[in-house]
Every structure is written in structure tokens, then in C-alpha cells.
Design a protein around this nucleic acid. Sequence first.
DNA 1: TTGTAATCTAATAAT
DNA 2: ATTATTAGATTACT
Lengths: 198, 198
Amino acid sequence: MASTSVCAATTGKSPNMLKGIRLVGNKSSQCSFSIESILGLDKKRDCTLALKPYRPWLEPSISTEEDASNTCLHIPILSYENPFFHAVNQAMPGERIVQNEKYCSATERLSYKREMSWYRGRRPRTAFSRSQIEMLETVFRVNSYPGIDIREELAHKLDLDEDRIQIWFQNRRAKLKRSHRESQFLMAKNTFSTNLQE
Amino acid sequence: MASTSVCAATTGKSPNMLKGIRLVGNKSSQCSFSIESILGLDKKRDCTLALKPYRPWLEPSISTEEDASNTCLHIPILSYENPFFHAVNQAMPGERIVQNEKYCSATERLSYKREMSWYRGRRPRTAFSRSQIEMLETVFRVNSYPGIDIREELAHKLDLDEDRIQIWFQNRRAKLKRSHRESQFLMAKNTFSTNLQE
DNA sequence: TTGTAATCTAATAAT
DNA sequence: ATTATTAGATTACT
């Protein structure tokens, strides 16, 4: 791979992304969004720099119609051939800032979301194996806050990235807390109905 | 490295950790906390399983004296030789749950914290180079929410882990928001004093 | 649909 | 200063 192109077609990370490309067209050879183009080293594309980066918190909290027409989500203004199609849209945190519900229906937005999700740039979901989960759970029972050394050890033993271990423990703690809250709630409800019967 | 020991002495990840070991004693050869011992495969240490895992949210919010004497932070009950010294204490999120302030002074706790930080298991702080920061900043200017592919690309180009990139962008966004809030505040203050002068 | 991996923010700890 | 971790909410994939 000589080029430093960053797009799905050349990195070929997940089948999802390839599917996405087929969906948009069969232009995988034209895909050319690269770090160089971000850095502006790719001089012939400088014109695209007019697009402003996605900074939700710099926007006014209640957007006017003019603002709405200016937001990144007001598509389709960017084509796939445009390198900034990837840069700007890639990691938009969903519809939280969608003020243009008046312009497109919920189903339209949903199908749009479906089509677009392939380039949103989320890491493909890791599917842990049975044995990996077992080991993680066993360690979790003893220590729900493994430090860097245990995380690295697990990562090595389970052939996973340390970051996946970290995230797994974060989600696992959240799950435990959730279930704890739920059981607390059930206990409270139980006590309540028992008190009523007396 | 034949053993799967997880402690700083054998993994030798950072000079900090080695310092910590020297601080506690010169027992680096005895260090033997391993995934096996967590999993209970190390039968001869099973007795240590009496120690309960650290689950702050399962504890009552206001602890009694009995509870306090039972918490992990009520040291020194664990010696370095005890494998669970590492497991249980490793990633305690600091003093947030310290209810035993009545038992040890602030300075005592501080020096304790100093001594103990080496095994808390935090990843050693990454020192980004000038050029790495430059590239990250340049990309950030265009896209503050890089997706997985750009993050991987950057990781490869800058010889960093992808999750360091992720964390860097999270912290960078927080910084931008902070500075934005500050400038908003200054502007408001300015407007206020100008209005007073009129 | 559900469960859970991945992402984000905000606050905070630690260096 | 700024990197690393956490909780908690949310998104989105299998």
C-alpha cells in the first residue's frame, strides 16, 4: 500500500465499509482522502477547505433556518468524491443536533443514517469469544478496576487490544451497577407490597 | 518471560513502577501476582480469596466504624507479598470514598497516596513529541471527531496506539470547549464594563 | 429486540 | 498543562 489513503476501500478494515462503498457507487479507485489532504499537502484540493469543521459547541444553541442550512447534517451537499465528505461527516455524534427534522421525515433520516453509518468511522464491533468473556468475567469478579498491567496481561493472553479490555471493564461496571439498581428497586417494591399486606 | 506474572518487576513497564518496588522493599523476585492466581488456578493461595473486591457502589453511602475497618483503604492490612495487594488496591479511584479521614490525617493520606500511586495501575503518561502534537493539532483543526480509520492512520503515522489518539482528541475537545467558555466569559465581562462606561 | 461494544461529555486524578 | 481514568448517557450494531 504505497498511498496513505485513509478510506475504507484501501484500508479494507471491515466488510461493512466495503458494502458501504458498493452502496454509494463503484468508485473505490477514486477514493483519496488522506492525512496529506487534511494537512493541506495535497495542493490541488485546497479549495475544499471552505467547509467548516464540525464543532457543535461553537454553534448557537437554538439554530435559525439559516443556521440549519449551514450545518453538516443538511445533506446532500457533499459527494463521496469530495475528500471532506469523509473528514467532516465521519464522526458526527448522531442526531443530537438535528434541528432540521422539519426538512426530512423520521424514516428519511433513518434510511439516511443506515446508508451513512458505514463511514461514520466507528470501530467495528468486537465479538468476544466465549472463552474470552469467561476469563474477563472471572477477573472481573475479583477486580473490577484492573490497572494497566493486568489489562495488558489480559490483552496479551486473550489476543485483544488493551483498549478493548478497558472498554469491556467500563461497560461491565455499568452493567453491574444497572443490575444492582434494578434489584434495589425490586427489593423496595417488594417491601412496599409486603407492608401493604400487613 | 516464562511466568505470566503481572507485576511491575517482571513486566518492567515504567521506571515509576521499579521505583515503587524499591520503595517497598527489595523483593522483586517474590512478586507473583498473576492471572492464574486471580483465576484461582494457583491453588496454594486460595485462602486470600476472602478479600472482597472493590465495588464502591455496593457499599452503603455512609459507612459505620465497622464498615470503615473493612474497606480496602484502611491500610496497612495488605502486605506487598500478598497477591491481592495488587489486585484489590490497584485501581482504586482515589480518595473519593475515603470516609476514614477521622482515622488518618490529610498529610498521612497524601504521603500514603504518593507511595501507593506506583501500583495503582495507571498507564504511564504518554509524552507526545513536538511533531506528533503538530500533526494532531493540524488534523484537529479540520476534524475534531476523527473516526476509526483516521485514528488508525494517525496512530500508524505517529507510531502511537490508536486509543492514545482517541484520548488525545477527547481531551483536546474538552480544552477547546473550556477555552471557548473562557473567551465567552471575557467577552461578557468586557461588554459589561463597556456598558458601565457609557 | 435485546444486549453490549463503542462513543461522547464532564469531572477529576495524576504526572 | 495535559494525559489518564471514571461515571453516566447515548448511539448503534449483531
